[in-house]
Write a protein that binds this DNA or RNA. Structure first.
Lengths: 254, 254
DNA sequence: ATCTATTTGTACGTATGTATT
DNA sequence: AAATACATACGTACAAATAGA
């Protein structure tokens, strides 16, 4: 039997992690707003009784989580930061990089969420938002001529959904839909669009988006939901037909 | 007009971030499996021509993302790591900490996803899984006597959904349902259960879970979906009635 | 059970880079 | 243009952990 250690697990943790935890607790306890400046390195070294390197490692931990940013110079320092959606998506993408996520998995969730979003958006879009959606559709008005154009159009048509995601009031729903669109933008497509059946699917997808915008404009939630459901079904079929596969790569961290 | 800088944005980035990016790219390019050991600190210092502290800051960045773990001693080092679901959930929770997420927001998504999961699970659960679900329900068989017991039961009834989340085949769907349950487990409830109407809601929620297990066992997907939909509706009503609010705190990082 | 080797973990002093005034 | 205030990076020394002899 090993000798009794008086050290708790918390004490056992590496020092940078302790500091990071402490700062997180402080942010919550004091309800610190983004933009607030943390004490200077020198002061943190004092407060925690640790060397510069240790403090800096702690800062990098929090920075990776997207919870703070630092900049040098006078008036510089470390600042509390609300993680951006992109950052959050990249971190979540890290997780799914190691899970074997299929296109079908993503579409099962899209199938459930996208119609819901569409329904809540009906009649609540500004003219500018409607215009942005219509302008986006124009980017893939005519069928692609080559592989590169096809890829561009694919990304553009996903942007349509990312726009919708940003227009809703529910941050969770919006984030998830945007996240899935960004995952799908990282696809490798092995079979081309040119077969007649695939082309039909492509065209009907485009038409669905047009119909959807019309329904959203006239405030018909039930129709918007119905159209989006059908749109998702054809989109999935198109992906399946093209034997699209998730690319094994991390999402951009920019 | 400022003088032209020859440095690109990439070169401009802090060195630890560069190293971290490089290592990520390497993981993807070589398709490194979790458990694989990275070069020693000394060697990385060499390879990147950087000081020890810099390399270590890079490691902390990757560690915070859940992509590696390190331990000292012989046979130690830094190891590629697949982020755990908990870690991923905690990081995603950081994001929503700063968004103003309401209980209603979460329930809108649950409403869409939970029935979908229930439907796909019908007839696909092992006897052991069924037993685990039934054992879980037993934890809140009788109404809570005090506030503490009420809270425990709330968490326990959410565990029912987390179990279901783990039984599915779709990692994305499972993660999301588990994530929402863990968010809801962090609630502050301001009004108690004792009012008759709230008590009815509580009881019907419990009954729904029983019915659901029965439907899952006999493989009736349509019924499972229907029951879960109704269950979500009452659960939301109960939360609303109790004026539950999201707690402003970070998810555990353990 | 002890020592030894290996590898990360922490400390500290100094120098450099960057942005504000 | 210069001084100032801050983070950023370096280099070295030493402490702690752990596998294996």
């Amino acid at each position: 039997m090993p000798p009794v250690t008086t050290r708790s697990d918390a004490e056992r943790r590496r020092r940078p992690a302790q500091v990071a935890e402490e700062i997180k607790r402080w942010i919550v306890a004091e309800n610190i707003a983004p933009g607030t400046r943390l004490p200077r390195e020198a002061e943190l070294m004092d407060r925690f009784g640790m060397a510069k390197g240790t403090i800096r490692e702690a800062m990098r931990l929090l920075e990776a989580e997207g919870l703070l940013t630092s900049r040098p110079g006078p008036g510089g320092g470390s600042f509390v930061h609300a993680p951006s959606g992109e950052r959050a998506a990249a971190l979540l993408g890290n997780y799914f990089y190691f899970q074997r996520l299929t296109v079908a998995d993503i579409y099962q969730v899209r199938q459930a969420l996208e119609p819901e979003l569409a329904a809540t958006l009906a009649g609540r879009l500004s003219p500018a938002q409607i215009a942005a959606l219509e302008a986006n559709i124009a980017d893939y008005d005519s069928p692609p001529r080559d592989a590169e154009e096809e890829r561009d159009q694919h990304v553009a048509s996903l942007r349509f959904h990312r726009l919708l995601a940003g227009y809703g009031e529910n941050p969770l729903l919006g984030f998830l839909i945007d996240f899935m669109a960004s995952m799908l933008a990282n696809l490798t497509v092995t079979r081309r669009l040119y077969e007649p059946r695939n082309f039909d699917l492509w065209r009907s997808g485009r038409d669905y988006q047009r119909d959807l915008v019309a329904a959203l404009r006239r405030g018909d939630g039930a129709a918007a939901r119905r159209i989006m459901t059908a749109h998702m079904a054809t989109a999935q079929a198109l992906m399946q037909a093209q034997e699209a596969e998730m690319a094994r790569r991390f999402l951009g961290t920019a």
